[in-house]
Design a protein around this nucleic acid. Structure first.
Length: 431
RNA sequence: GUGAUUAUGGUGUAGCGGUAGCACACGGGCUUGUGGAGCCCUUAGUCUGGGUUCAACUCCCAGUAGUCACCCCA
């Protein structure tokens, strides 16, 4: 499967960085989504689903120009009607748009939502990175209280733990609010200007567009310069400092391990105060990967057109990275499950009545696999075997006359004849 | 956007400057009221476009795509 596209002509291949999710992988995703929803619901979050397409402007103004996501990774398109739309590169701005559009500020605050689905970024694919990928988001809108920061982090971490994660660490930082962040940026720019000659070109460029980003630059020279850079936390105004301290206290209280990373700034410009990333360390090779991240975005609402600020905070999980990890504990979905019964029919008489029996099973919520198109018993059994299905229901001419079926345990080849009227009862027992 | 690397039926693979084998899978047939089977048969391939050459699947270049890494990010 891994080379499925190596020779497929482009016309019939999925687009670069996008793939089909099926079989075991499908169940893995589905299982994760169900578990994540369950956890979120226990904490009082409600579901929402926003459109995959949005006005492009909510992203350009919300996430901000000067970020890579906007400048080079967005799928933009113009509709036949002339609207400028974009495939969502993340869930946060659309959620805020929905909040504003539906006047949710009249509801009891905060409003807490979870949502999940595909997001799109036009980046080059590599390990754990696709152009269409899946995020599960937990957000609290309408409260600036530090406990909401802690809450979304807690819920996100619980979901990850339920999924089998155990080597997680939370990198956390605070980049302040409008005032302290601006004075900090001013100070930072001054500092870099003093060291301008030592900065690589990329970072000189960033000095103009997004100076905060220089802090987590991967350039060796910049890293050196960053050693002496002023740090955001010491520039925090008293309110922000208090907020950050409270968040950390809550995390400690909940036993969540964190480390303060002064260079963490995140690539989206709507963040204020709390920002964090959840890092997974691979036990085998020691490599790390961010599998979830988020932060507070108190000014996003106004940026995308609200008259009032809506303080909010969110946590988003990179589902592909969770499901694709070595530690992922396969969560199996409850709603869409893999059938445990293979239905086999034999003879014209039986084939005729087969669909009725399948319908009886369907009404009892018992999914099956079948090969109605086949005739011979042997070949149908072979398929059941091949698909690794534990039970077979055999329905032949004789059974059709007697209104019964044979239920066969594929593992030990034992079988029983069961009246159709008692079939559901019988199946309940063997499960 | 940058770099490395790869590309042969559906899948996995062989091979050679003289146009391709093999295995499995799939499909059909025989047999068959009880299992990964057997036998027979069919289908199906050199990623695309250029170049070198009498001749290219093979050598060269470009493109595309997979994988990985950088940037960035989930």
């Amino acid at each position: 499967m891994k080379n499925a596209k190596k020779t497929t002509p482009k016309e019939i291949a999925s687009p670069k960085g996008m793939r089909d999710i099926m079989n075991e992988e499908y169940y893995s995703f589905q299982g994760f989504f169900e578990k994540a929803q369950e956890v979120a619901v226990y904490y009082g979050f409600k579901p929402i689903e926003t459109p995959i397409l949005e006005q492009e402007s909510i992203f350009t103004t919300g996430i901000g120009e000067g970020t890579d996501i906007i400048d080079k990774e967005m799928y933009s398109l113009k509709t036949k009607g002339g609207d400028q739309l974009a495939l969502r590169p993340e869930h946060t701005a659309p959620l805020m748009r929905a909040y504003i559009e539906h006047g949710m500020q009249t509801m009891p605050q905060p409003v807490m939502f979870y949502q999940y689905g595909p997001v799109f970024r036009h980046d080059n694919p590599q390990k754990g990175r696709y152009r269409q990928f899946y995020q599960f988001d937990i957000d609290s809108l309408g409260s600036e209280k530090s406990i909401m920061d802690a809450l979304v982090i807690k819920v996100g971490m619980s979901i990850l733990e339920e999924a089998g994660a155990h080597n997680l660490s939370v990198d956390i930082n605070s980049i302040g609010d409008k005032e302290c962040r601006n004075s900090y940026i001013k100070e930072l720019v001054n500092y870099y200007k003093k060291n301008l000659s030592g900065l690589p070109t990329i970072d000189k460029e960033r000095l103009k567009t997004n100076p905060l980003r220089i802090l987590d630059s991967k350039e060796a020279k910049t890293k050196e310069i960053n050693e002496g850079a002023p740090d955001a936390i010491s520039f925090l105004c008293p309110t922000c400092k208090k907020h950050f301290k409270e968040v950390l206290e809550y995390l400690e209280e909940m036993g969540i391990n964190y480390n303060i990373n002064k260079n963490l700034v995140r690539g989206l410009s709507y963040y204020t105060r709390t920002v964090f990333e959840v890092i997974e360390t691979n036990e085998e090779d020691g490599t790390t990967m961010a599998i979830a991240s988020g932060g507070r975005y108190d000014y996003l609402a106004k940026q995308i057109g609200s008259k009032k600020d809506v303080p909010a905070v969110g946590f988003s999980i990179g589902v592909d990275r969770v499901v694709g990890s070595t530690w992922y504990k396969k969560l199996s979905p409850r709603i869409i499950k893999k059938p445990k019964i293979y239905f086999i029919q034999l003879g014209g008489e039986a084939k005729l009545k087969s669909l009725n029996i399948i319908e009886i099973l369907r009404k009892a919520h018992i999914p099956i696999m079948q090969s109605l198109s086949k005739d011979s018993l042997g070949s149908q059994l072979a398929v059941a075997e091949r698909l690794n299905i534990p039970y077979a229901i055999i329905f032949g001419v004789k059974e059709a006359i007697e209104d019964s079926v044979i239920v066969r345990d594929m593992s030990n080849r034992s079988q029983n004849t069961v009246k159709i009227s008692k079939l559901l009862e019988y199946l309940k027992e063997i499960k």
